[in-house]
Nucleic acid binder design. Sequence first.
RNA 1: CGGAAUGUGGCCCAGUGGCUAGGGCACCUGGUUUGGGACCAGGGGAUCGCAGGUUCGAAUCCUGCCAUUCCGACCA
Length: 507
Amino acid sequence: MAKNNKTAISPRRDEDYPIWYQEVIKAAEMAENSDVRGCMVIKPWGYTIWENMQRELDDMFKETGHKNAYFPLFIPLSYLQKEADHVEGFATECAVVTHHKLTKNAEGTLVPDGALDEPLIVRPTSETIIGATFAKWVNSYRDLPILINQWANVVRWERRTRLFLRTAEFLWQEGHTVHATKEEAVEETLKMLNVYKDFAENILAVPVITGEKSESERFPGAVSTYSIEAMMQDRKALQAGTSHFLGQKFAKASGIKFQSKDTKEEYAWTTSWGVSTRLIGALIMTHSDDNGLVLPPRIASAHIVFLPIYKTDEERETVLKYIEDTKAGIKEHGRFHERHLVMEVDDRDLRGGEKNWYWIKKGVPLKVEVGMRDIEKNSLAVLRRDNPELKKDFIDRDNFVRDIHTTLDDIQNTLFERAKKYRDDNTHVFDDKDEFEAFFTAENKKKPEIHGGFALSHWCGSVQCEEELQELKISIRNIPLDGKEESGKCIHCGKDSIKRVVFAKAY
RNA sequence: CGGAAUGUGGCCCAGUGGCUAGGGCACCUGGUUUGGGACCAGGGGAUCGCAGGUUCGAAUCCUGCCAUUCCGACCA
């Protein structure tokens, strides 16, 4: 099938990456901007992905001993003040509730009325309110550990928003745990970080680097913050999840104390960890191409779409029957990784071409055309969305049905390997300052091309070097956990260093 | 919060002081079509972002505001 040069998404990635991103979302009907500034409407095709993420992650949380609970949307203003660093981090982006009713003024317009004694803030995160609650739950070492997760929405009044990547309100999960010892809390922090890595790589097919954040990138109030970092197709880094070791800071702020075995009163050790709808942005920017969204089968909103092709009512009957038989055959193979295969049949009265492109842009892993010619040969016209050439294969129906799980797994693996290769190809080790700086300098300053990537270089550990490197618009994404110790010189100041860190431009 | 651009039916745009604001796409009706973005005919749909001002007359000029997008600072 000859393919013309026109791509379904315009502009292409190499023409204008940020606009391409928005167009992919629009074309796939995943989300749109709402009438409320900075807040998005997540449409069914996008929300299904979130539901799939929730289910997979929730299983993993349960598997590691966590239980779900729900805490209030509103947090008393005074609670936020309990932890000094925490206040500083979030104070500038809080929605504040000051009144509890509306009345009509002289002009007949509704105005806030009934001022609250103490203003409430809409949670930007829940450490404080959950900490206050945990303080009541914990008395003895026998009450520990407490392993809680909450699925919720949070609000951070961001100045500049982008669909899925940064919105004023977003959906996420936040895990909060309390432990008797530091070791146990650290272990929990790293365990959940690895759950995130597992999820990102195996379910989303997004390769990530686990590592610790530098001091300046740390969560407000944390002792240490760890992240998973992914590379998008514009070679910028995206922080896709974080896990925090909170030490005893929040325990002290909220009074989470317990009596130990030897009858002494001790402060507990806490952790928190979260991923958000931002992961959908990561998914889009990792796999999608110039023809729209590309979804890995393990997270896809639908796995297979059948497009019936017929001319007469009789043919329609025949074709739809053939599709139903094929679906039934596929169902007999059972669930795909414990999930029912979602199969759509698009029998809308639309031109074939238009319908085809519709589903290509939606990123369904397998698109199957069925017409009379296929039925005669007992075959199917199959297009794998991971094939950038959009090439149709005519496959024997029995083989297609038999191999369906293998095929989907193969698409999943192909996407992961492709993303991993892209990241690795664009990750370089630098020991020379000039080369390092050239790597991050755009050739065309007016309209910077896609350039740079991840640089693995030595860093002395000083905040000053980190700040000065911001001139290159880069930051330390994290200090990889699997990085081996080796002596070297800081790429910026030349002082001694024992570890390489990941430098990159970031979202 | 700074810089830039843009606001005209659902979407994309034309109209740069003068008749009833146009076109393309989308939508609805009828017909012909249907294996890679169809065609014909008819039809519905707009307080030209908002508020003031200038003018005999404003989508068009002026002022202010608002929104969106991009770039920067700040952040998941």
